[in-house]
């Protein structure tokens, strides 16, 4: 074996070592990212809806000036990497009970919170992000008829939260769906 061959083999094996490092690094990073994706969680808690009721002389009612507050709980429990949350969005629909039958009327169009600075949820940390939606431009009157008995409840549906894993900003943003079912107590308030 000549010296040129030996030199080529040596360079080839150096490249191979670098490739070996790359392979190990991909396996490690992949595990960390997947583990973070599995363990990072978010939910909506402490929902509160307030509104103004307008009573008409014929007995009909209408509702307006909705103010919806909610806490988004973001938890990085057991997640090995930090998470950067960019925006939170959710839509609100009002449950209407008419003569014992339930129907759903959407109050808000899609409400969107774009955070000026991303909220960083560190590994093992739980963060509460308070959100408020004011819906003043919609007058919730068209379903109101004095001949029915009805109540207003609320239901938060189809929310979402976009986040990225720190250290891997080139990865596509992940999304967590936020949803909460109504409870009877909330519905009949």
């Amino acid at each position: 074996m000549g010296p040129t061959t030996k030199a080529v083999i040596a360079i080839y094996l150096i490249f191979a070592l670098y490739s070996g490092f790359a392979v190990v690094s991909v396996a490690h990073n992949n595990s960390q990212v997947i583990s973070t994706t599995i363990h990072f969680s978010a939910s909506i808690q402490n929902i509160n809806v307030t509104y103004d009721t307008i009573q008409y002389p014929d007995g009909a009612k209408s509702y307006k000036n909705f103010r919806i507050t909610a806490d988004i709980i973001m938890s990085g429990r057991d997640a090995p990497l930090d998470v950067r949350v960019y925006d939170v969005s959710y839509s609100v629909a009002i449950m209407v009970v008419e003569d014992g039958k339930m129907g759903m009327k959407s109050v808000g169009s899609f409400n969107f919170y774009s955070m000026a600075d991303p909220v960083i949820v560190n590994s093992g940390q739980t963060i509460t992000y308070h959100t408020t939606v004011n819906i003043t431009d919609q007058h919730f009157a068209e379903v109101i008829n004095s001949s029915y008995t009805r109540n207003l409840g609320y239901w938060l549906v189809s929310g979402g939260l976009n986040y990225q894993i720190s250290g891997f900003e080139n990865l596509p943003k992940n999304k967590i769906m936020l949803s909460r079912n109504y409870s009877d107590a909330e519905l009949m308030q």
Partner: peptide
């Protein structure tokens, strides 16, 4: 050489 080839291709 076999291991090197395999590692480079895989990486």
């Amino acid at each position: 050489l076999i291991a090197g080839t395999a590692l480079i291709d895989a990486a």
